[in-house]
Computed example of a mutant assay.
Amino acid sequence: MPQQVRGVVSLKKGDPVSVETIVIPDPGPGEAVVAVQACGVCHTDLHYREGGINDEFPFLLGHEAAGIVEAVGEGVTDVAPGDFVILNWRAVCGNCRACRRGEPWYCFTTHNAAQKMTLTSGQELSAALGIGAFVEKTLVHAGQCTKVNPAAKPEVAGLLGCGVMAGIGAAINTGKVGRGDSIAVIGCGGVGNAAIAGARLAGASTIIAVDIDDTKLAWAKDFGATHTVNSRHGDPVEQVRELTGGFGTDVVVEAVGRPETYRQAFFMRDLAGTVVLVGVPTPQMTVELPLLEIFGRGGALKSSWYGDCLPSRDFPMLIDLHLQGRLPLEKFVTEKIGLDDVEKAFHRMEGGEVLRSVVIL
């Protein structure tokens, strides 16, 4: 029978979120109901509340989550009730042109649950990133459930569902950072610091954190930055070059998503270096670069979608590395909160006071 649970909803563009009663249907074919144990407060959820993603209100917010599978629908074989899972928003289809050419991390037709969760009035909810996890239980496509080692704490495991995976993947999967490489990371919030942690994990020898906030730069050193640059105090491009023998870094990860920081990233890299854009720009933003410089510098200008991750491959591996003490996911958790505290957490996030607030259910 359908269940009624509490969840955080954005009813109208720009309005504070509210905790509402949510109706969760029984799972249909290919679907699963997951009892959410923890969910990180990600900037994407704030974008939904502000109408920056689309206008399909009301939204059931939350997507960076881990929990226990409670029930599955017909035909589900990869997960079963009782499994500890991280929720992902890239449930690969296996049939699109990206999947057929052997690049499922680019899947262009990812799966979501066919049924909708609703308010008690019957009004359908749009689940953030097809998940909707600021809620006691959620309905997702079974392919959105990635089984991992249950020894990991839910509040750290769930962070791999979005921001931390995006940053680690931007460095390792998209930027191809390897042993002895140099990397600069512009923007040292949750995603940027995850890129720093990923670069350290991959064996980079020079890891330069760039930000305008000394607090965030201190966080970056804790995650493995070997050098820091406060771009309020001089040209960050020149400062990064001074730290790399005048050349620039092999890879630059831009985790802000603004034209001015993207230009900095472009000129901050060495010849034949790689720029990775993982910060999300707004629709009206544009960037202008000298075409001769694009040709003359060579290398690659890349965008990183979800860290170019394959959840079934990357989530279990990263959880294992965390349990071995090699990936300090616990350092991303600034505070643990309840469902009623999400609006306050948005304000703390906007003020740069936290890396991650995590809702505990």
Score class of each variant (00 low, 15 high):
A128P: 06
L329R: 05
F315Y: 15
G169S: 06
T109V: 13
T244M: 08
P316R: 15
L60F: 06
G296W: 09
V19R: 00
A255K: 06
D222E: 10
E56Q: 13
I86F: 13
P281Q: 05
Q324T: 10
G234R: 00
D341H: 01
W305M: 09
E20Q: 15
Q324E: 15
A202V: 04
T282R: 15
F134V: 07
E31C: 01
E288A: 14
P311K: 05
D235N: 15
I294V: 14
T44K: 03
D270K: 14
K302M: 13
R356D: 13
L339Y: 00
T228D: 02
I294Y: 09
V354Q: 08
A272F: 10
E136Q: 14
P311G: 02
V8E: 08
V85S: 08
I53S: 04
S126P: 03
H322W: 02
K344H: 14
G122L: 03
G52Q: 15
Q3D: 15
G94T: 04
L289D: 03
I53N: 12
F267Y: 15
A35E: 13
A209C: 13
C309K: 08
F59G: 01
T334I: 11
D83V: 06
G338E: 12
F223C: 05
K116I: 13
E20L: 12
S10N: 03
T249S: 02
A142P: 01
G163K: 06
T146K: 04
D314N: 10
E242M: 12
I196F: 07
E288M: 11
D314Y: 10
A255Y: 11
S304P: 09
T146L: 08
V275E: 14
G198D: 09
E103A: 10
L217A: 11
S126Q: 12
L60N: 04
V34G: 06
G163Q: 02
P154H: 04
C39H: 07
K153C: 07
A345P: 10
E330M: 03
C107E: 07
E288R: 08
C39R: 00
D213P: 06
V140M: 10
D235G: 09
L160D: 01
G338V: 03
V76T: 07
A184K: 02
C107K: 01
V17D: 02
F315V: 02
L11A: 12
G28D: 04
P16I: 12
T215C: 03
V240T: 03
Q324W: 00
